[in-house]
Write a protein that binds this DNA or RNA. Sequence first.
DNA 1: AACAATATCACATTATAATGTGATTATAGT
DNA 2: ACTATAATCACATTATAATGTGATATTGTT
Lengths: 69, 69
Amino acid sequence: MLVEQIGETIRNRRKELKITQPHLAELAGVSINTLYKLERGQGNPSLDVLNKLAEVLGMELKLQIKGKL
Amino acid sequence: MLVEQIGETIRNRRKELKITQPHLAELAGVSINTLYKLERGQGNPSLDVLNKLAEVLGMELKLQIKGKL
DNA sequence: AACAATATCACATTATAATGTGATTATAGT
DNA sequence: ACTATAATCACATTATAATGTGATATTGTT
């Protein structure tokens, strides 16, 4: 999963939950800049940042055999 | 998914495919040190590193709603 | 046992993710 | 139109991931 798709996924989920970038950033304990860049598909986020955001969004990161649904 | 689980998953998959750390590191284009630490559950790997390794291992990273199988 | 390949680890360096600040633009609400 | 909040962006700083090197185990093979 590329950073562009992850950014889009996070943005979509955030909008579903009706929370703002500043709010999500605070809840997850990451900087607003980091979140902003990630949603834009920029940069190369760390596992820690992805996990923190996923947690707040009720999501999870998975590493699995390709093709598995 | 925590770095410990990811490390274990990668190590298990690598053994299934019967390739060594040096070989996987080279195929994926990451340093042997990075792979070694990751498999040990140390550090905080970047999305890029995880994607490169997943690709070689025939795996993929997914971000999805919690609980989805 | 000896040898070769693999894995582990410490340490220093380099590259860059993450952050902080401030400014600008967009959006929404009154 | 005005105001407040949110989002975008540039730039500098700090923290740390990724790498490189070399040394020491560990494991497997003959």
